[in-house]
């Protein structure tokens, strides 16, 4: 199959999932205790208010009409308005900055995880059973166990409370305003996020490279006396696919971690927003977040699949 056709097919196969995500986001309002009216009116809502809310929301229409109205709003960029946290503000506007903050944090975390993980993994593959190899095994187990939010608290405690660095506790990440300071405040969250996941990356990298090293064709190349750079290139070519998988998967883990770490550092990203939305039961916001997060993850899976197809033509069949 040609690459173009492969990509097209992947795209089409993602559509049903995407549609289901919109159902999930829409349905969220209806699984809440008491339904949307209770949720919007709050505990002090009078019966008259509830009737009015019912009419305003168009809840007397059939379900599919309501869904279509909501989804057509979404497509034109209208996600509804905030009701509890900042009444009347359009959600699309409220979300722009948090999305950026989370994006930068995830990117920073992924960078730390990749740089640390890949280098430790590659080094311990070259020297198996060295102290570095032992350390890499230990750190990958630690990765399983140490919650990133705990690591974040410890970092915050050490740098913010004991050493009293101002940037350590600010959580301000806004590249349009102060680039240097933003980078500084990103440092600790990115380390908390990345370090906790570097072990996984290291472990997989080591396993893959170690395996490839002992494969007959690489040993054959060595016996033939091919120059090192050719051998390494072929090794990477064969070992890269599982590493790409880990990459996509690690970014997912880090994104999940940003939620908790943002709360620790008070960084105003999606996580902090979601938690606030959860506590104030800001339903329209929750719906939008479900929609956005779901779409982002579908796109990311799609990207990993496509990258696969580019790197390994065998996958395309």
């Amino acid at each position: 199959m040609s690459l173009f056709k492969y990509i097209g097919r992947r795209f089409v196969s993602a559509i049903p999932t995407l549609i289901l995500i919109t159902f999930l986001a829409f349905g969220l309002l209806y699984v809440t205790p008491g339904g949307p009216v209770e949720a919007l009116a709050g505990i002090f809502g009078t019966p008259e208010q509830k009737v009015r809310i019912r009419e305003e929301l168009g809840l007397n229409d059939p379900l599919h009409v309501q869904y279509l109205r909501w989804i057509s709003g979404v497509f034109s960029g209208d996600f509804g308005e905030m009701i509890v946290m900042a009444p009347g503000t359009p959600i699309a506007e409220m979300l722009r900055k948090p999305l950026l903050v989370t994006f930068w944090l995830t990117l920073g975390g992924a960078l730390v995880a990749l740089v640390v993980g890949l280098s430790i993994g590659a080094l311990s593959a070259v020297r198996p059973n060295s102290w570095l190899d032992g350390f890499s095994r230990l750190s990958s187990i630690a990765t399983y166990s140490i919650p990133d939010f705990w690591l974040a608290i410890i970092l915050l405690f050490v740098f913010g409370v004991i050493f009293r660095y101002r940037w350590a506790i600010s959580g301000q990440i806004d590249f349009s305003r102060n680039v240097l300071f933003s980078l500084q405040s990103m440092l600790l969250p990115a380390i908390a996020l990345g370090l906790a996941k570097a072990g996984i990356v290291a472990r997989i990298t080591r396993g893959e490279l170690f395996d490839v090293q002992n494969k007959p064709f690489i040993q054959f190349e060595r016996i033939m006396g091919l120059p090192n750079r050719v051998v390494i290139k072929d090794m990477l070519h064969n070992g890269i696919l599982p590493i790409v998988t880990v990459l996509g998967y690690t970014i997912g883990l880090i994104f999940r971690g940003t939620f908790l770490v943002e709360v620790v550092f008070g960084a105003p990203g999606i996580g902090l927003f979601l938690v606030r939305a959860a506590k104030t039961q800001e339903y329209a916001l929750l719906q939008t977040l479900v929609l956005i997060i779901g779409t982002v993850f579908i796109l990311m899976n799609l990207l990993t699949d496509i990258l696969y197809g580019v790197l390994d033509p065998r996958v395309r069949t």
Binding site: T17, F23, F259, L274, V290, I293, G294
Partner: peptide, 13 residues
């Protein structure tokens, strides 16, 4: 569809 949300996120939602 449910699998697109990484673990704890779905639980939070």
């Amino acid at each position: 569809a449910l699998l697109t949300f990484p673990g704890i996120l779905l639980a939070v939602i």
